[in-house]
């Protein structure tokens, strides 16, 4: 469990990092928090010729919360976002998801953007970013681009990033008024990747009906899975007990989840229905608060 040899680069400016990456191409891996990469290096599951450490790039270590929303740089640790009371107030679902990410020690080192770039579909952050409609800001020596979270995740451990690109920032747009949210998951142990997880968002309208609901699941597919059919069932309803039962059944009937060492497809099928129903009932719990607060 010792890494294969690699060359180590420590740029201090973003342009320097991009230039190095442009030269090294697919022979390089980017090191941010290292919470997934370093174990993979030690198990020799990865043996990149070059390691580009972006921890000294001060420009990437900032986050900001403005009227437009939240911007999180590639060097920002998960724990910083989790511990910000302003962010918890503005994006409670993001805060909830973060408290489910691994353990405190790992969140102290792990970065938000690192988890997204790693693109593990059983992780919490990819599904919550899809639910939040986040934008990925991607830079390279040849140009910059932005990609919607929903289009960023391509397959298990595979994102839209090209070898010479860095995910420098994630933008989470400000949530509409009266937005409610929930993050639910089932894990074997506290801090494990989700057997099944779900990030849910929606807005209660003046008639007591849920609108613009988003339901995005972790752990059930090679990418964060947005359950549009379930969203269609619940949008415009009052999320009555009958609606919840219907949506649970529909999720169970429709999904064909992945199977792995942790659990079977069948288990995930049943429990995704449960997790979605429980998440929706937490939106119900917040109906009064959402209407009363505005």
């Amino acid at each position: 469990m010792k890494s294969a040899p690699f060359k180590y680069y420590v740029p201090s400016e973003i342009d320097e990092a991009l230039e190095l990456l442009y030269q090294l191409g697919d022979e390089a891996k980017i090191l941010a928090g290292g919470q997934s990469l370093v174990p993979m290096l030690n198990y020799r599951l990865l043996s990149p010729a070059n390691l580009l450490d972006i921890n000294r790039v001060s420009e990437l270590k900032r986050y900001s919360l403005t009227d437009e929303g939240l911007k999180i740089g590639a060097g920002v640790r998960q724990r910083e976002i989790e511990l910000s009371p302003e962010i918890e107030l503005a994006f409670p679902v993001l805060h909830q998801a973060l408290t489910n990410v691994a353990h405190v020690q790992i969140r102290n080192r792990g970065t938000i953007c690192g988890s997204l770039a790693h693109a593990d579909s059983a992780a919490e952050l990819p599904s919550v970013m899809v639910a939040l409609g986040a934008q990925m800001v991607i830079r390279s020596g040849v140009g910059d681009r932005a990609v919607k979270a929903e289009e960023f995740f391509k397959f298990h451990l595979t994102s839209d990033l090209e070898p010479a690109e860095i995910l420098t920032e994630v933008h989470v747009p400000k949530l509409p008024a009266k937005t409610v949210g929930a993050f639910e998951e089932v894990t074997r142990r506290k801090g494990d990747f989700a057997l099944v997880g779900a990030a849910l968002l929606g807005q209660w309208d003046a008639n007591g009906q849920i609108q613009n609901c988003r339901i995005v699941c972790s752990g059930v597919a090679p990418v964060p899975l947005r359950l549009r059919f379930a969203e269609d069932i619940v949008n415009g309803t009052d999320l009555s007990d009958q609606v919840l039962v219907n949506v649970q059944q529909s999720v169970m009937d429709s999904l064909d989840p992945t199977e792995d060492i942790h659990t079977s497809s069948h288990y995930r099928k049943i429990v995704t229905g449960v997790v979605v129903r429980r998440g929706l009932s937490r939106l119900v719990d917040q109906r009064g608060a959402a209407n009363g607060s505005r």
């Binding site: 174990p39 198990y43 074997r188 142990r189 506290k190 801090g191 494990d192 990747f193 060492i261 942790h262």
Partner: peptide, 16 residues
């Protein structure tokens, strides 16, 4: 062997 790290081998922690 299918479980060769603590990611896959669920050794309980103080929390469990």
């Amino acid at each position: 062997p299918q479980a060769v790290s603590y990611l896959d081998y669920a050794l309980p922690t103080a929390i469990e």
